[in-house]
Amino acid sequence: MTFPAMPKAVHQFYAGSQAADAELWAGAFAEDGLFHDPVGSEPIRGREAILARLRKVIPLFDPFLGITPVEAFTTGGQTAVLWRGAVVSTEGNPVNWSGITVYRLDDEGLIAEASAYFHHGVFSAQLGKEH
């Protein structure tokens, strides 16, 4: 698949997700980056906390197919990406969901803040769990 044109750190975010590589994925964030996953939940603060969360979540799925960017829009120092995600639970339940994430980069080009907009209830329902 051809990826949409995105800043390097945003591309790294998706490459890390698709490779199920927590270090690559979290490495797209600034040391003090914020990750709202999803918006409305308590943000994950700092690259180390983001890395810890990803290391915890990825093994919950087999396979973890990741998040694929569909379209990207960059303007005014921010990038919004429409994406689709796919995983299979270790119990064999396929989960497909989609959303939009808005990224704000710092002066070094790393993700200072990522705000993911998706319906967590849709994700949880496919797992057979309450949200």
Score class of each variant (00 low, 15 high):
Val10Gln: 14
Asp62Val: 01
Ile67Ser: 08
His120Gly: 11
Ile44Met: 13
Ala22Cys: 07
Trp83Arg: 09
Glu48Ser: 15
Gly33Lys: 06
Ala116Cys: 06
Asp21Ala: 07
Pro94Thr: 06
Gly46Trp: 07
Thr101Lys: 08
Leu51Gly: 02
Ala19Trp: 00
Glu71Leu: 12
Val81Met: 09
Asp21Ile: 02
Arg47Gln: 15
Lys56Trp: 00
Asp62Trp: 01
Glu108Ser: 14
Gly33Trp: 05
Leu127Thr: 02
Val122Asp: 13
Lys8Pro: 06
Thr75Ile: 09
Asn96Leu: 14
Glu42Tyr: 04
Leu65Cys: 11
Ile100Lys: 03
Gly85Ser: 13
Phe64Cys: 07
Arg104Asn: 08
Ala26Gly: 06
Leu105Phe: 10
His119Gln: 14
Thr75Ala: 15
Leu82Val: 10
Asp32Cys: 05
Ala28Glu: 07
Val102Trp: 12
Asp37Pro: 03
Arg55Ser: 08
Ile111Ala: 12
Ser89Met: 05
Thr74Pro: 01
Gln18Asn: 14
Glu71Cys: 09
Leu110Trp: 05
Asn93Cys: 10
Gly46Thr: 06
Gly99Asp: 11
Pro43His: 08
Lys8Gly: 10
Trp25Ala: 08
Leu34Ser: 11
Glu91Phe: 10
Ala26Asp: 01
Asp62Leu: 06
Phe35Met: 15
Ala30Ser: 14
Val102Leu: 15
Trp83Ser: 09
Pro38Trp: 08
Pro94Tyr: 04
Ala49Val: 01
Ala86Ser: 10
Val70Glu: 15
Gln12Gly: 04
